Amino acid sequence: MDIDLLSNILFATVRCGTPLLLVALGELVCEKSGVLNLGQEGMMLFGAVIGFIVALSTGSLWLGVLLAILAGMLLSSLFALVALVFNANQVATGLALTIFGVGLSSFVGAAWVGKPLTGFEAIAIPWLSEIPLIGRMLFAQDILVYLSFVLFAVVAWTLLKTRVGLVVQAVGENPNAASAMGLPVLFVRTLAVLFGGAMAGLAGAYLSLAYTPMWAENMSAGRGWIALALVVFASWRVWRLLLGAYLFGFASILYLVAQGVGLAVPSSLLAMLPYVATIVVLVLLSRNALRTRLYAPVSLGQPWQSGH
């Protein structure tokens, strides 16, 4: 395998892993606060269609990104209202949100399917993009990939090094103790849910404005579900999340790699690998339930009311 092919593989791996990283970062913060939101797929698709429509109608890609983020936050606010304020079951609420988001995105985007759009172009950083092997992977991407690098660094630093990160984790581990200490549990959890919605909307915008600049029904192709599994796979650790996102991204392009090296393997079979990998990861994790409980936030998915 020559260095140019390897460089192209690494470049494509980062591009494919970026939407997974964005969604998973939002879900990680959400789950760290003790809230399990399974509505990532619906929020991502709604963000993708709103971002595409706004960008195509106004000619502004950045306005499309902004409205996609707000669209994700809008759906996440519905989840927060039902699951946090009214204390509905978080799993059922998240599943309902995904079904609602998928249907709403298909309805809103019905007239926009297949319309062309000039999306975000790659920006090669002089000198750095010419570094052998890793130059194109890290320094010749579009602006939203660079933004994902920054967001990962900010989330990692916030969770690991700041008081805000400690507050989020305290609320997720023991909301009663956190409330007794004067921490606004519901407020913190609501902000975490809104952040998760914003990241899902941004991931949707990346899909429809950068990765494949167009709108198609169900274009997220299950990435929201993969991101949910990715958080568990990473044991709720932010650095493992980065590695896992790009590993799943690599699995997504294996059929292209096989074609590039001349392997006679059906492309449809290799295209299944990200979903097969997700199932395998969940099966392996379920065999060690003690390890999963050890790393998971103690109050994850459990309803909480002030005064309880």
Rank of each mutant, 00 (worst) to 15 (best):
V265K: 09
A271G: 00
V49L: 05
A24R: 03
F52L: 12
A271E: 14
W157R: 02
L194N: 05
T118W: 12
L263R: 03
S76R: 07
G103M: 08
L247S: 08
V35E: 00
A170D: 02
F79T: 06
W236F: 11
A264N: 15
Q305T: 07
R287V: 00
V188K: 04
F100C: 06
V232K: 00
G17A: 09
G165H: 05
G307I: 04
L241C: 12
R15P: 00
L243K: 01
S148T: 04
L20W: 06
M219Q: 14
V193D: 01
T98V: 04
Y255H: 15
F149S: 08
G64R: 09
F248S: 03
I253H: 00
L294P: 01
L95I: 15
V171I: 07
Q259K: 13
A140W: 09
F11Y: 13
V238R: 12
R240F: 15
A289T: 13
F250G: 15
S299H: 12
L270K: 13
A258Y: 05
G64Y: 09
N8M: 01
P184V: 08
V238P: 08
V167L: 06
G101T: 13
V164I: 14
V155D: 11
L256T: 04
G196Q: 03
I69G: 03
Y275D: 08
L75T: 06
D4M: 10
M137H: 02
N89E: 15
L247D: 07
V283I: 15
V23F: 09
V91F: 14
V298W: 06
S267T: 15
L186R: 13
M199G: 01
F248M: 13
F100H: 00
T13S: 05
A216N: 01
V298G: 02
L242D: 04
S286R: 10
G94I: 09
L75F: 12
Y211A: 11
I99H: 03
A48M: 06
T118A: 15
G101C: 13
L209P: 14
S105Q: 10
L207T: 07
